[in-house]
Design a protein around this nucleic acid. Sequence first.
DNA 1: ACCCTCCTGTCA
DNA 2: TGACAGGAGGGT
Length: 292
Amino acid sequence: MPEVETVVRSLRKRLPGRRIKNVEIFDPKLAALDTERLRGRRIRAVSRSGKEIVLDLSAPRRPLWLCVHLRMTGRLLWAATAALGERHLRARFTLTRGALLFYDARRFGVVRLAESPADFAPPGVEILAAEFTPAKLAKLLAGSAMPLKPWLLRQDRIVGCGNIYASEVCHAAGLDPRRPAGSLTPVEIRRLHRETRRIFAKAIECGGTTIDNFMDCEGQCGNYRSHLKVYEREGERCLRRGCPGEIARLVQAGRSTYFCPVCQTAAPIRRVSGSKPRPGPTKSRTGRRPER
DNA sequence: ACCCTCCTGTCA
DNA sequence: TGACAGGAGGGT
C-alpha cells in the first residue's frame, strides 16, 4: 500500500486535467478493457482505494473510473521521464502532451473500468483511516483462529497490508506471527494498532519499499527498504535493542514470514478471560517443522 | 491450514 | 534446475 500511495502521489502531479487521446493494449490479458470508452475522457483526479489506483474520468452524468491494480510487478510510468522501452510494456495511454505507460513483467496486474464508487470500494478498513481504531481492530480480530500474520494480509479485514509489512508489523509489536489472530490481549491489540499505523506512515513518507524494481511514475525508487527489521533478513541478528535473537523464516499460507523467535514468542503478559484453553504457539503451532 | 493457479524473471 | 518473488483468488 505505501508503494501504491507513492505512485498515486506522483501521478497526481502529472495526470489531472489531461485528456485521454488514445489507448493501446499490448497484452491479450488486458483485452477486456473497453478502450473506446476511455477515449476523449478527461482525468479529473487520482486516488487510491486499498491497493488500487483509481483515475476519476467522470463527466457530468457520465461517471467512470479507471482502476489499476499493480499486483506484484506492475508499474505506471510517465513517458517523458521514465520510459523503459518496449520490454514488458502492456498498455500505453496517450494523453494530451504526454503518455502513461503500463509495464508488468509477470502480467498479474489488472486494469479495469468502474461505473460506480462501489465497484472499487475496499471491503475492509483502511489502515490510515480515522475509523481504524484499536477497538475496531479488536472487533475484526475477535474469534479468528487464523495465524496473525496471514490474517494481516486479508484485505477484507484490514486493507493495505502486504507481505513485507505484515512481517514488519508483527515484529514491531513483538507478536508471534503464528499466534491465532483472535488470541491477542487488549494490550497486544493496542500495540499492534499503534505499530501498524506508525510503520505505514513511515513507509509512505519514505516512498515505499523497493525490493527489486518498484518505482513511482517518474522512475524514482522507494527507500523504506533500509528501515526493514525482519523482511529478507533470515539468519541475521534481530535489530530490537538488546535482543540476542536471529531472524528466522517460515512459510505461512504459501508466503514467507520473517520473525525473531526470541522477542516475538514471549507469552502474553496476561490472559483475557481465563476460560479459553489456548496455549501460546511457542513451539508446535505450525504442526510441521517450519525451519526448512 | 494446507494446496493450487495466474505469469515471468532472477538467483544460488 | 529448482526455489522463490511485492498479490489475490480459488479449492479441499
